[in-house]
């Protein structure tokens, strides 16, 4: 299955054979999960989103247009799911719910450096939550998923111009939040150098 394109895999699924499900999942689950995690700031919700998105992909495979990009379609489903999730009053992103970054640190990395990187990751996550949902969606898809503004516009159901504005405003806000604390900002930059 690995040698087949997304479109070829989806054609098989559309024919009623679900065997490519695992291959498609392996290709996209990481991106979908991380998008939802950063959008919703909840690992549990991100896991549910990933599950729902791929189940929907299988159940509604016939809605996928063969000439479209599968990633765009999957992100559309994911973004819809996340928006619905946030619309429910009880699911507003909670201030205290920091998603801990638990990636294993390289063996040769000092504990201080590891701690610093985790703190930076938390600062970025918190800053992202300060954005409006629309801005967050746009910047996440642009910065972390590398999607074009045209694709983001298709996912968000808005114009490319609106996406441009959302990303710009998101960057303005993030710039302030991530550099206002000069010490923290320096630490961020140092950690990457």
């Amino acid at each position: 299955m690995k040698h087949l394109s997304d479109q070829e895999l989806m054609r098989i699924v559309q024919g009623g054979d679900f065997s490519p499900a695992s291959e498609i999942y392996d290709r996209y689950s990481g991106r979908i999960y991380n998008f939802a995690l950063r959008f919703l700031k909840s690992a549990e919700a991100a896991e549910d989103a990933t599950q729902e998105v791929f189940v929907k992909m299988i159940k509604h495979a016939n809605q996928f247009q063969g000439d479209a990009k599968l990633s765009t379609w999957l992100f559309s489903i994911t973004a819809n799911w996340c928006r619905d999730y946030l619309r429910k009053a009880d699911n507003k992103v909670k201030e205290s719910e920091d998603v801990l970054v638990t990636l294993p640190a390289p063996a040769d990395q000092s504990p201080d450096r590891t701690l610093e990187q985790r703190e930076n990751a938390l600062r970025i996550q918190r800053a992202l939550q300060e954005l409006t949902a629309e801005q967050r969606e746009a910047i996440l898809l642009s910065r972390y998923q590398g999607l074009s503004y045209a694709e983001i516009a298709q996912i968000a159901g808005c114009s490319e111009g609106a996406v441009k504005t959302r990303v710009f405003r998101a960057m303005e806000t993030l710039k302030k939040l991530l550099s206002v604390d000069a010490r923290g900002g320096d630490r961020c930059l140092n950690a990457m150098s």
Binding site: N120, R143, C188
Partner: peptide
């Protein structure tokens, strides 16, 4: 700088 800082957010394994 901000764009670069954002890149420091690691991807989390599913």
């Amino acid at each position: 700088d901000t764009w670069q800082i954002l890149g420091a957010l690691p991807a989390v394994a599913v």
